[in-house]
Design a binder for these strands. Structure first.
Lengths: 209, 209
DNA sequence: TTTGAATATTTAACAGTGTTAACTATATTT
DNA sequence: AAATATAGTTAACACTGTTAAATATTCAAA
């Protein structure tokens, strides 16, 4: 009895995984706009209505992808920032790599920041996951800087929020309003904004307030 | 003949106006999600297909509202910032008022920054209108500050871009990812970020680089 | 004023969307 | 093997945007 219950759950999770995998593939390749319950089911090898045996609705399914994409993005960022020297320089390159991940997969940016969740019930964990993602990517660096008294806890908290706001704003302006006009200009602007944000931080450490 | 051509154009513009007005009302009251070609036409007093005699598609129609909303937002901002003292303080309150307009009408934020335009052909003017809106709202203040040598042209250009990025990021995070959790926290954060952006500006004027 | 042509508007249809209920096929238990 | 519970599919509904065909309306000429 207990064993069967376990098997049942394993099988259920497996099938949920098929749908999640199909959704992820479409999201990465085509983007959010060309995602439908029918083409997800088709790719997963089931009929469209089967999805509703495993997910409350299609948004539930879509937001199940967030965790997977964050893991992917995390390794993407880690590879790209392996050689950066610790502290502020590393935080800078993490932020740039974070941005570049979403530039590579605009559909994932839309999932993370554009797609609205009505039905907030039960999705707060996912929202938190998204809102704290960049912070978590930089957490190690911030922590050791605070520990080594290179920066105050308060200043680092403030900087985390600033980075989140700036990266989100930059990505939205570029991906949805083509500002700046091309990638070269965009990434130059992004670097400039991130640099200035983090450099002003050191200044505020030297002065009193 | 010439008179009839004129009348025809007047009538055509009138009918376009009915559709635009209906779209604006739905957008302000319900938001982008509950906007459809059928309920626009219904409110305008026409059949749904009639829209296609006056607009290429529904996105064309929707983006025709941008100019009107900007005019409305401009008077909203002017009323709210009438008493601010010129210069940086006025730019701060303009930015806050700008943000508050979108908070009051999230559907208009979505139209301005979320809704994608495929069919970029012919819509570049609208994109520019959106991207330069906050800049235009503050233009007078920036100009007189540059004129009075309180700030360099370069620094003011940089600040304009920063303000655009920060306000967009703040609005997206709050409206789509409930960060911060409530309006009180949100507007406090917005004020903090705007203040710091503009205060760092003065510092960069006193120091050399 | 009545006819004929041009124009404006509507209806019908198509191909999509998400979601639910009813039906069928597959496992599981007795 | 038969009865039951579960999983999956099909059909249907109410939407969406858009186009073509049919209808109504306007307007110029006879």
């Amino acid at each position: 009895m207990r064993v069967n219950m376990g098997n049942k759950e394993i099988q259920e999770q497996r099938i949920r995984g098929y749908f999640v995998q199909a959704t992820k593939e479409i999201l990465k390749a085509e983007g959010l706009h060309s995602l439908s319950v029918r083409n997800i089911a088709n790719k997963a090898g089931y009929s469209y209505a089967t999805i509703y045996n495993y997910f409350r609705d299609v948004k539930d399914l879509v937001f199940e992808c967030v965790k997977d994409f964050q893991e992917e993005a995390e390794t993407f960022v880690k590879v790209q920032t392996k050689k950066s020297e610790p502290g502020i320089p590393k935080i800078k390159s993490i932020s740039i790599a974070y941005i570049n991940y979403f530039i590579e997969y605009p559909g994932i940016f839309e999932l993370f920041f554009i797609e609205k969740m009505y039905n907030i019930a039960g999705k707060q964990p996912t929202i938190d996951l998204i809102n704290t993602f960049l912070e978590r990517l930089c957490a190690e660096e911030w922590n050791s800087m605070v520990l080594e008294k290179q920066i105050s806890q308060k200043a680092s908290d403030s900087a985390k929020v600033k980075l989140q706001i700036i990266t989100t704003g930059l990505l939205l302006m570029y991906l949805h309003r083509q500002y700046p006009a091309d990638y070269k200009q965009f990434i130059a602007l992004a670097a400039k904004e991130i640099d200035e944000t983090l450099d002003n931080l050191n200044l505020s450490k030297q002065s009193k307030k």
